[in-house]
Amino acid sequence: MASGEPLTTTGYIKHHLQNLTFGQFPDGTWGLAHGAAEAKAMGFWAIHVDTMFWSVFLGALFLWGFRKAAVRATSGTPSGFLNFVEWIVEFVDENVRGSFSHKNDLIAPLALTLFVWVLLMNLMDLVPVDWIPEIAKLMGIEYMKVVPTTDPNATFGMALGVFVLTLYYSIKVKGVGGFAAELTMQPFEAKNPILKVLFIPANFFLEFVSLVSKPVSLSLRLFGNLFAGEMIFILIALLFSGGAILAVAGGVLQWAWAVFHILIVLLQAFIFMTLTIVYLEMAHSHH
């Protein structure tokens, strides 16, 4: 709970939803924002230190673990962690083979990275909501949001990467003309050249919306699910301050919601990976 703010329900929730923001204050000095208003005032040129830290930490953890497994990987009998890693790799590989029909060495590692990274970030949601923020508070850090995927910056960041790849491969595979044609010559098609030209604005509008909606929906789906899950954890955590009976009820609820949330955590990571593969498959294929 925030040191400066009074302990109210609203304050508690707000505190939990506030990122640790580093940026430039209106007076020109740089530092960490104290509260939502200050963070907002920093504008675009500010960075969520907690989101960056946890996402990079978890991503590095994933790559470190998998790299260790990769170094030890042989054609002999696998065991322990290597077995687990191979299981995930095969799972991802099968998914990529199932939905991606072209030859591209980037897609499978991309899918693996997204799946495991998103999964790890989502799993942070299962850590009781107050643990890490309280430890951070002891270390003098005012705000700490530990689930990077509840920060739209993180999900948009990844979706942006996927979007850029989609554009890149669309142009690479179909050429600029082919890609432009895809954006303007459908869904309304005509043999007559004049009609064709007339259809261009409508086609472009529809196709552009569908193109842009892909990364937006990709990131918002993940963000929305995890944010909602986090919010429910926060609301359940409020019960702990409401007396013994409510605290026990809160404990039971937290456990139940955590169990259910495992499903969401896994499912959202899987969906993010699968949709990425599907979008890239669409970028590679001619309509």
Binding site: T21, F44, I47, D151
Partner: peptide
Amino acid sequence: MNINLTLIGQS
């Protein structure tokens, strides 16, 4: 929940 430089950092 502001969109800011974190977006670029994440990318």
